[in-house]
């Protein structure tokens, strides 16, 4: 991997055009732009997409924001659909119908609903079969497209429209599923977790590895949703930084079974710092709910220790 230079990288032509209908301040398209910048110039790509915010907003007939070939099929089958595309590429190349000097890369995007939940089987199948593709989850921690319903990526205690805070409820009961680890346990050659950092080096380097590592690769991007998380939309970079500095969203990669931390906060911040910025956790700061924050912190600590253990092996 050559040295990362943001000023060089930003010269690349945009592969996601403006004019898409994602909300102002959306994290998903920041993630998409970052991933696509990792494609080498001259390489072709086919982009897959699970149904979700990104899909309905980026290809509303007749306006496609995608400069590359693009296929949306349905909600739960982005993995399988791109399996078919990637296999077609191999089949057509074998038969000489695609020139040997043409390189295609296959990248599919899905939200956490389409990836952790309804598309989980299709994703697992595609990963296990080892198609030469990258599945990118933009994880905003709920079904945002349909109006902020909880998913298995939603953090514990989050106030969502299907886990509303009420007189008998403190939001979602369960902590979130750790999908990156689950996909890493498929023994894929590359799986990583990332988000937006100041110079975008982490997401760029991981995207390039994921795209250019042969086999099925997985990228999980924490992509905040200002509407669902209820923070000031201009603050996305701060939110992401707090997610990693509190170790809520550790940055790591798993390459051929070896776990590696790609960022370790100099000083691990208390989880309150991350929670208090977001309206979905507002209730945790009411008097009498102190134990809920303690509980949240304990879960973050336990998982962080687990990752440190895995990365130290």
């Amino acid at each position: 991997m050559a040295g990362y230079n943001l000023k060089e990288i930003m010269n690349k032509p945009e592969r996601l055009s403006p004019g898409h209908r994602m909300c102002a301040g959306c994290g998903a398209t920041i993630g998409v732009r970052a991933v696509l910048r990792a494609l080498h110039e001259g390489d072709e790509a086919v982009i897959g997409n699970a149904t979700g915010c990104l899909e309905v907003s980026s290809y509303m007939y007749p306006y496609t924001a995608w400069e590359d070939s693009y296929i949306h099929n349905a909600f739960e089958n982005a993995g399988a659909t791109l399996s078919g595309v990637e296999t077609a590429y191999r089949a057509l190349k074998k038969r000489g119908k695609i020139s040997p000097d043409t390189t295609y890369k296959f990248i599919t995007f899905g939200g956490d609903g389409g990836t952790y939940d309804i598309g989980f089987q299709s994703l697992s199948g595609a990963m296990e079969r080892g198609h030469d593709m990258v599945y990118v989850c933009y994880d905003n921690g709920a079904y945002m497209n349909t109006g902020i319903q909880r998913s298995s990526a939603t953090p514990q205690f989050a106030d969502t429209t299907t886990t509303p805070v009420g007189s008998l409820s403190n939001g979602k009961l369960q902590p979130r599923k750790d999908l990156t680890a689950i996909i890493a346990e498929h023994n894929v050659p590359y799986a990583a977790q990332t988000t937006f950092t100041r110079d975008f080096k982490d997401i760029h380097v991981k995207s390039e590895k994921a795209i250019y590592t042969e086999g099925a690769c997985f990228l999980n991007i924490l992509a905040p949703c200002p509407r669902g998380w209820r923070y000031d939309m201009a603050d996305i970079m701060k939110i992401c930084q707090l997610a990693v500095d509190t170790c809520y969203w550790p940055l790591f990669e798993v390459e051929n079974g070896t776990w590696r931390l790609t960022y370790e906060p100099k000083k691990k911040l208390p989880i309150e710092d991350f929670l208090k910025e977001q309206g979905r956790f507002k209730h945790l700061f009411k008097p009498g709910n102190e134990d809920l924050i303690v509980q949240f912190q304990e879960e973050v600590d336990r998982r962080w220790e687990d990752i440190l253990f895995r990365c130290s092996r």
């Binding site: 899909e55 290809y59 509303m60 007939y61 007749p62 995608w66 400069e67 590359d68 070939s69 949306h72």
Partner: peptide
């Protein structure tokens, strides 16, 4: 490039 499966 071609795009399949729009929201219409």
């Amino acid at each position: 490039p071609v795009a399949f499966g729009p929201y219409a």
